[in-house]
Simulated scan of single mutants.
Amino acid sequence: MKTFALTFLALGMAAVPALADPSCKGVEATMPMWQVAKGFEEAGGKIREMKVSDGCYEIYGTNGETKLEIYYNPATGAELQREES
């Protein structure tokens, strides 16, 4: 029974994808951070914190009641990954 439970747990954990933060190392930051922030705010978002993480622009903020963590490409301003809670 113990072996079955461990096997079941291992298989269950393998089915859950791990979200890794994107990396923008080696990407030249050609878009100013303020332009990314402006676009976020124009879409109704409120910024709590903004920083550079692994070369990517990262915004922590809210849109309505939704908490957001969004990564952007520093060269293009394109959204790379979004986490909502």
Rank of each mutant, 00 (worst) to 15 (best):
M1I: 07
M1D: 15
F4W: 15
A5Y: 09
L6C: 14
L6I: 14
T7P: 00
L9E: 02
L11G: 13
L11N: 10
L11M: 14
M13N: 04
A14L: 14
A15G: 09
V16P: 00
P17W: 04
P17R: 12
A18P: 02
A20G: 07
D21E: 04
D21K: 08
P22L: 11
P22Q: 11
S23A: 12
K25V: 00
V27W: 00
V27C: 02
E28K: 14
E28R: 14
A29E: 09
A29I: 00
T30Q: 08
M33L: 12
M33W: 02
Q35C: 05
V36W: 00
V36P: 01
A37E: 14
K38L: 10
G39P: 00
G39L: 04
G39Y: 02
G39V: 06
E41K: 12
E41L: 08
E42C: 07
A43N: 11
G44E: 11
G45S: 10
G45R: 13
G45W: 04
K46I: 12
K46V: 15
E49N: 12
M50S: 13
K51F: 10
S53G: 05
S53E: 15
G55N: 06
Y57R: 08
E58F: 04
E58P: 00
E58Y: 03
E58L: 08
G61F: 01
N63S: 09
G64L: 06
E65C: 00
T66I: 15
L68Y: 06
L68Q: 05
I70R: 06
I70E: 04
Y71G: 03
Y71C: 03
Y72N: 09
T76D: 04
E79L: 03
E79N: 04
Q81M: 13
R82M: 09
R82V: 15
E83I: 15
E83F: 05
S85Q: 08
